[in-house]
């Protein structure tokens, strides 16, 4: 599949909408000097191609002290996809990547209390058949994090095209 073409206007739209998704098409059109129809059409196409997704990011339910941890997982190589899918079902796990390197699977986990993180890593993940080793590393300080660039997985694409 060839990469979809994203032009300068698309990038300007993404830039504006990544700051605030609730700006009206009319305001965007006026700012960029294009018609409202163009704005509407571009946004629809970007959504359908899975290039952008609109989301309401909330912080409630997270204690102010919410921390990020990385859990690296070593598994039987022939079961990695299935194990990754199983880990992805865990609610505290925010991201699951299949990797080549010192782990087969890398997960990002948001937690507020240390014992909850331990339960995910050492009870739930380690108990999955085919998992041999987990290694947890806690982020004590985030120096840089661009939360507006993400991997839009199939589920979000489906939601976007349903609209």
């Amino acid at each position: 599949m060839s990469a979809p073409l994203i032009d300068a206007l698309d990038h300007q739209l993404i830039e504006i909408l990544s700051k605030d998704a609730r700006i009206s098409n009319r305001k965007i059109a006026a700012d960029l000097g294009v018609t409202e129809g163009t704005v509407r059409g571009r946004i629809k196409r970007l959504q359908q191609e899975g290039m952008i997704a609109f989301t309401a990011i909330t912080s409630f339910g997270l204690a102010n002290s919410a921390k990020l941890a990385f859990i690296g997982v070593q598994t039987d190589v022939d079961q990695v996809k299935q194990i990754a899918a199983e880990i992805a079902e865990l609610p505290m796990v925010n991201a699951v990547l299949i990797t080549m390197g010192r782990f087969n699977i890398l997960t990002f986990c948001l937690f507020s209390e240390l014992d909850k993180l331990h339960a995910v890593a050492s009870d739930q993940i380690l108990a999955i058949k085919g998992v041999h080793h987990v290694e947890t590393s806690i982020a004590v300080k985030t120096v840089k994090y661009n939360s507006r660039i993400v991997k839009i997985t199939k589920d979000e694409k489906l939601i976007a095209s349903d609209k």
């Binding site: 990011i57 909330t58 912080s59 991201a95 299949i98 939360s147």
Partner: peptide, 24 residues
């Protein structure tokens, strides 16, 4: 020591601590 992502199974982004870095 690198780990190269070959597949992304889950990437959830709608719950996050919101702080100054995220402000427009």
């Amino acid at each position: 020591v690198p780990a190269i992502a070959v597949d992304v199974i889950k990437y959830k982004f709608d719950v996050a601590p919101i702080d100054a870095r995220m402000k427009a």
